[in-house]
Amino acid sequence: MKNSKIFTENLYLHYGSKMALNNINLAIPEKKVTALIGPSGCGKSTYLRTLNRMNDLIDSVKIEGNISIDGINIYDKNIDVVNLRKKVGMVFQKSNPFAKSIFENVAYGPRINGISDKNQLTEIVEKALQNAAIWDEVKDRMNDSALGLSGGQQQRLCIARTLAVNPEIILMDEPASALDPISTSKIEELIVQLKENYTIVIVTHNMQQAARISDMTAFFYIGELIEYDKTKNIFTNPEKKQTEDYITGRFG
């Protein structure tokens, strides 16, 4: 595929003896939104976590195959995982702000990356909050605790925290599943805006959300990639019956 940012080739992942990903081949395009869909336990979140090596933290995991970002194999032994995770940021299902001020939440990443100049940090924090579409709501309360924000605001703050370390890829694991429709809509608008500058991979159980915001959709089932195509093809005329059955709710 032209302009692919992430290439996955012959990827297998086992949790102990249990195979969680079975021969995944996938090319994720740059500066587009790619949605991963499928029933619980299908491997979509596991796959998402292979893209910034979050699965390395689990002892029993065994990975075979290749994942390359910008042509570099991220499972090469010389790869610095911390740098990889700077380049490939992640937003989780449940917002997880630190018990610190709004400013400190966003400044945390740049600070541990060695930026200590107050003016520079202020500039980075402001820009990240603006890009995460939350600046107007928090600019007058930067020193208040982040835990006082609403769920939707906390999630956008976490997106700002991810943006502050200047990633190229953002992984999102059901980022709006715990939010009300208005907050969900704000997150979705934000994702569509962010794809101008970032490559986004999102796991979602919400079919309509995948249809609304993604350019490409990958359908996973029992560890296999069943179908991968433009989102409009998947949702109007999928090729595989399993995809059709899943997205129309006739599964199982």
Binding site: M207, Q208, A211, F235, T236, N237, P238, I247, T248
Partner: peptide, 9 residues
């Protein structure tokens, strides 16, 4: 119902 795929068609 937000139909998709063959239902939508």
């Amino acid at each position: 119902q937000q139909p998709v795929a063959s239902d939508l068609r």
